[in-house]
């Protein structure tokens, strides 16, 4: 049986890891190479690296940083941020990433998901969705692009379903309402998406306490949980998280 994955996320801006609240008020959280190596050693199941400066334009400089991070990361490694073409994906994968995550580019050019899946396989293609609760509609969420700065009219659940059909192998779902609040994941959103697709869904945004992680999996139906603040700033270690989830009966990978 596959285990539930614990995935720390490095939001990288100007070569530093940062963490904000609801995508704003960024605070420095360290060096990406050091943090990546630490998470790999501590038993994280995967690492996600998002270049949050890059959403408008893909930055070549990120390749070098990805290479450096990959040298010390011996767990699956996903990279995203501003990627717009399969050539850029190829470059990212060749520099040591195992998967690429696309967000804005997939919204403006959905066939990118198909091209990527055909060239690298679906297992390499992660569709990242930034979701914001629609005003006056408690069970509707809208897709936001360009690092959350631009709301669209696209419905999150419909986009997830379409993304799977187009070739995404995984959905990385971030609740912008919950991001950085440490008040728990948006499990209504998580459940709506995980019920709608067959591919794995990674829940992101809102982790503050251990039971939040449990709830994202048990209530939200997530296959994996993404976190930043609670592990970057030393509130919990990866092992503490896994021991807790195991004690509540979830299958986790303890090395």
């Amino acid at each position: 049986m596959l285990t539930k994955r614990i995935i720390p996320c490095l939001d990288v801006k100007d070569n530093r890891v940062v963490k904000g609240i609801k995508f704003l008020n960024l605070r420095d959280a360290g060096d990406p190479v050091e943090l990546g190596a630490r998470y790999s050693d501590e038993g994280a199941d995967e690492l996600v690296f998002l270049d949050i400066t890059a959403t408008i334009r893909f930055r070549k400089t990120i390749i070098e940083l990805v290479e450096k991070v990959a040298e010390n990361v011996f767990i699956p490694f996903t990279v995203g941020g501003g990627i717009q073409t399969v050539e850029q994906m190829d470059e990212i994968l060749r520099s040591g990433a195992d998967k690429v995550s696309v967000n804005t580019a997939a919204v403006s050019k959905p066939e990118l998901l198909t091209e990527a899946a055909q060239r690298f396989g679906s297992q390499c293609v992660v569709l990242a969705i930034d979701a914001r609760r629609a005003k006056d509609k408690p069970h509707k969420w809208q897709v936001c692009v360009k690092a959350g700065t631009e709301p669209t009219e696209i419905d999150v659940v419909e986009w997830a379903i379409r993304g799977e059909k187009l070739g995404a192998g995984e959905i990385l779902l971030t609740s912008m309402d919950a991001d950085g609040t440490k008040a728990g994941y948006d499990n209504k959103l998580n459940k709506a998406v995980s019920d709608a697709v067959d591919i794995p869904m990674i829940a992101s945004g809102g982790a503050g306490k251990l039971n939040h992680l449990y709830d994202a999996i048990a209530v939200g139906g997530a296959d994996a949980v993404l976190m930043a603040s609670i592990t970057h700033f030393g509130n919990y270690t990866i092992n503490q998280i896994k021991d807790y989830l195991a004690s509540r009966g979830l299958p986790v990978n303890i090395q």
């Binding site: 049986m1 596959l2 285990t3 994955r5 199941d45 396989g121 679906s122 297992q123 192998g169 067959d198 591919i199 794995p200 296959d223 990978n253």
Partner: peptide
């Protein structure tokens, strides 16, 4: 079960 078999398994 999903195919691809992707993730950590015993």
């Amino acid at each position: 079960l999903c195919v691809p078999h992707m993730g950590w398994n015993q």
